[in-house]
Design a protein around this nucleic acid. Structure first.
Lengths: 246, 246
DNA sequence: TTCGTATCGTGTAAACTATACACCTTTGTA
DNA sequence: TACAAAGGTGTATAGTTTACACGATACGAA
């Protein structure tokens, strides 16, 4: 457990003139970004995973990840990964947490930064061509490669919190959606049941839903009205937004 | 802007047997942890900074940071830094965010993970011996070394949010404190003014303050009652805790 | 000793928000 | 045409948040 202190090495009063040679003496490690890409389909929370290509993790799934390049910052790496795997560019993506256990990767010291995003499976599934990539039901994921189950759990907790702070849920739904779909989404992610009337009242009072005048047309019962989220209005007032409480 | 994709390199169906040599081909970088150590004293939010030892940042201040060692995870590194600089062990410490711009460090590619903590300046100042380390008023910090001003701002935003989610503020106060001190703390951190009666009512309704029966004895006016925070009770009920709204 | 000043400590009414709860309507299907 | 499934709506109650004012206490200065 002997740890060396790297920065407390200057002599009193002597300033270091050459930061490059100072930094060179420090240890280096690999850094990756791993993306937990959540979707919502058939009333279930899904997550996009890729089959591990390491023999020791044969038949296990992992998050979509990649190394960060020398001249690339982490956000750029995360967006690149998303773009390479799903073809998507304009998607919300946020840094969640760093995972840094020294032995978390069997190939050596690899530190990873988890990123999380939410997207609409209907919009994006067509752009995925690699058949080693699949949407998995979040609730039925057991073992994963590396420490990715732990990372995924961290991302799920982040999602539960974030969805109450910002109206992210709309990224998971089709452009036009019914209030029932919206409520199903919140119930699935938060793991709670809500009163339908009160749920509708809450969203009505926010005045961020646009009634499209259209109705569902593929349901075996009375169709509900379809709404759109008013992203423009939200952008204007998001500085004073304090979240949604359920 | 050419980015290389590192993980999509296996041939279809071929599993990689040797993760070590795979990982070796990836780029490496330096990783540090930087701690924003907040304190509260004289009704002001303070932050503990160290004078930069790099000539190009002469006379500028920086956060307390250090490299992460080869066999150390990030949390351990952050706690080590705190211990080495302040002597403290049992302090709340949390990962805030990664800063990864390729050119953020003049000595090369150094990725840093910001950590944040809150502590009581009275309890901890005696253990600091390095006179290049000082408590600075948060509000009067202008320029800093590296991108540390940006990091510090990120930590301050984190603090504002966190202090409403968890009763962290008590870490900044003496063991026994008056309600006025408590209110001053929240007002200083959140940058808002609150009604004294309503503030007291809110804390009274939480039932997490213990009336010590003692009074302030160093004030030039009627002394207030001194309270202690009931950490034990909070621990028991913190699973159902949903935050403090101001 | 008395007055001025600063803060302590407290309660209530009004506005707002959250909750619990039930019925008729509309559509599709059998 | 009747049944099943979900749509759409309103109200009363409880709880919470806000705004607001005055007498009490302690210290210090004149």
């Amino acid at each position: 457990m002997s740890k060396i202190s790297y920065t407390i090495k200057k002599k009193e009063g002597a300033l270091i003139k050459d930061p490059v040679s100072l930094v060179k003496s420090y240890p280096k490690m690999h850094v990756t970004a791993d993306c937990a890409i959540f979707g919502f389909d058939e009333n279930e929370l899904k997550v996009l995973l890729i089959r591990s290509d390491l023999a020791i993790y044969k038949d296990l799934w992992s998050l979509l990840g990649d190394n960060i390049a020398d001249d690339e910052d982490l956000d750029a790496a995360a967006y690149r990964i998303l773009r390479e795997r799903t073809g998507m560019k304009d998607v919300y993506l946020e840094q969640v947490k760093v995972f840094s256990k020294p032995d978390r990767h069997p190939g050596g010291r690899v530190l990873t930064v988890a990123y999380c995003t939410l997207l609409n499976t209907r919009h994006h599934e067509l752009m995925i061509h690699d058949n080693e990539i699949h949407w998995h039901k979040f609730s039925s994921i057991e073992e994963m490669a590396f420490d990715h189950k732990e990372i995924l759990n961290g991302c799920y907790q982040w999602l539960q919190k974030r969805i109450q702070e910002h109206p992210l849920g709309f990224n998971l739904l089709p452009e036009k959606f019914s209030l029932r779909e919206l409520q199903n989404l919140y119930e699935a992610i938060l793991g709670i049941r809500m009163d339908r009337r009160n749920f509708r009242k809450k969203f009505a009072s926010m005045k961020l839903l646009i009634d499209t005048g259209e109705l569902e047309d593929d349901v075996p019962h009375r169709p509900g009205k379809l709404y759109q989220f008013n992203f423009e209005k939200y952008e204007k007032q998001k500085n004073s937004w304090t979240g949604i409480d359920f």
